[in-house]
């Protein structure tokens, strides 16, 4: 599903070179629910951008469904995002003046879905997230935070992507709605979807099946939830052993 090999990302601003990712290798299989956790500045957002095909790595290889996308140009990446990835953001990023259906239909505009089928797909996606049907034609800025995030999840689902990428999806929510949203993700996982969750909160990461901890641009821990760290020993969706990582886990 996802295979990262020795991914590095460097930013150069002026004379200073910042290393955001210093060589990261791992694999995520289809159907996994993985949390990538790390403090701010750890490189987890950069990693999310690369997994989400929003950015390309400086070096290393990133395979998405067996396809090397490391050298795709902007338009190829855009098409890839449209077909394979559904994003859920911390700030929801809904179009405030648009109604729920219109928001969910947005990715379909850029795909090849005929106009007549869009609303039907949007409804299906919304029903999966458990949003009230009464809200379908409300403007998104009239909804509560939890409802908005469910609209955003529906938007991520509507193209039936191979991967759902959630970036701090509960960062703007209270603990009660946080639970509902996370349960929605768990349910999607149970339905067989691949979910990658980026967070800095350990509690949120606990909803996932597998937790990858990243710090200073390197993976420091990769464990199945509820088990001891099994760096390098995972049977399912295990990591590709890489230099540097062994030292950290030792």
């Amino acid at each position: 599903m996802i295979e990262c090999t020795e991914i590095t990302k460097k930013y150069i601003s002026g004379d200073t070179e910042t290393v955001a990712l210093a060589g990261v290798s791992f694999r995520i299989d289809a159907g996994e629910f993985v949390a990538i956790i790390g403090p701010s500045g750890s490189g987890k957002s950069t990693l999310m951008h690369i997994i989400g095909a929003l950015d390309t790595p400086t070096s290393g290889r990133f395979l998405l469904e067996g396809q090397d996308v490391s050298h795709f140009d902007d338009d190829q990446l855009a098409e890839l995002r449209n077909r394979k990835i559904g994003f859920v953001f911390q700030a929801f990023n809904l179009l405030p003046r648009a109604n729920v259906i219109r928001n969910v239909c947005l990715p379909l505009l850029y795909g090849k879905v005929p106009p007549g089928r869009r609303e039907e797909l949007a409804r299906e996606a919304l029903i999966k997230t458990g949003l009230d049907e009464d809200s379908f034609f409300k403007r998104s800025n009239q909804l509560s935070g939890g409802q908005q995030q469910r609209v955003a999840i529906a938007r991520a689902l509507v193209t039936d992507p191979s991967l759902i990428l959630a970036d701090e999806p509960t960062g703007n929510l209270d603990s009660k709605t946080e639970k509902i949203v996370m349960q929605t993700f768990q349910q999607l996982h149970n339905e067989g979807r691949t979910i990658v969750l980026i967070t800095h909160e350990a509690e949120i990461a606990e909803y996932a099946q597998r937790v990858i901890t990243i710090r200073d641009g390197l993976i420091v821990e990769d464990r199945l939830n509820g088990h001891a760290a099994r760096t390098g020993e995972l049977s399912k969706g295990g990591i590709v052993p890489a230099a540097g990582e062994a030292e950290v886990s030792a």
Binding site: D75, F89, L106, Y110, T159
Partner: peptide
């Protein structure tokens, strides 16, 4: 700007 970012993240090309 955010709307543009969102549209791009859901697959809008430069030309779109």
């Amino acid at each position: 700007t955010r709307e543009i970012g969102l549209r791009k993240s859901v697959g809008a090309k430069k030309s779109d």
